[in-house]
């Protein structure tokens, strides 16, 4: 009987505290500067564009933030509309403009705001360096010439290795 009462109390307590914890966590987001949240949204768009919920949360949190210093909230609001319309490229551009960053350039302003847990992601399909930009093979005459040089090096190497066995 005591066990049942204790279990009931525990479950009731958890049910009571759960929403409170969520509310507390959400409240904490309001204290994160909007600029940090916009930067995080940009980073997620650039690195994990499939994380739509996380991007939406960051934009919403930026709009709700108590500290909007250095951020043009009108542009963030436009970015939210663009995002809801499915235009990720325009969303990123507007977010960059909202914090005064040059589009496509590094977001260099450091921040010391609290970190937020990243969204859970699925395993990457390829190593980071292959998923990054500019990893297409060197083509054209340059590529062919370099491959020919490689073939020559390999041939000479094999001859030397066999000759000095």
């Amino acid at each position: 009987m005591r066990l049942r009462t204790a279990s009931l109390a525990l479950i009731t307590g958890l049910l009571a505290l759960g929403p409170a914890a969520v509310a507390f966590a959400h409240g904490a987001e309001k204290n994160v500067p909007a600029k940090t949240l916009v930067e995080e949204a940009i980073a997620i768009i650039r690195t994990q564009p499939d994380q739509m919920d996380a991007i939406a949360d960051k934009i919403k949190d930026a709009l709700d933030s108590n500290d909007a210093e250095g951020v043009n909230l009108d542009l963030v609001s436009q970015a939210q509309t663009a995002f809801q319309g499915g235009d990720l490229g325009r969303t990123e551009l507007l977010l960059e403009q909202a914090i005064g960053s040059t589009p496509g350039q590094p977001v260099v302003s450091p921040n010391s705001g609290p970190r937020t847990p990243p969204p859970p992601t699925s395993p990457p399909s390829a190593p980071a360096h292959l998923r990054a930009a500019g990893s297409s093979p060197i083509g054209g005459g340059e590529g062919v010439a370099l491959l020919a040089v490689a073939a020559g090096l390999a041939l000479i190497g094999l001859v030397v290795v066999r000759g000095f066995r």
Partner: peptide, 14 residues
């Protein structure tokens, strides 16, 4: 050839 990831943003781990 190795590529290059996105320009860095502080405060997140992705």
């Amino acid at each position: 050839p190795p590529g290059q990831g996105p320009s860095p943003v502080e405060g997140i781990e992705v």
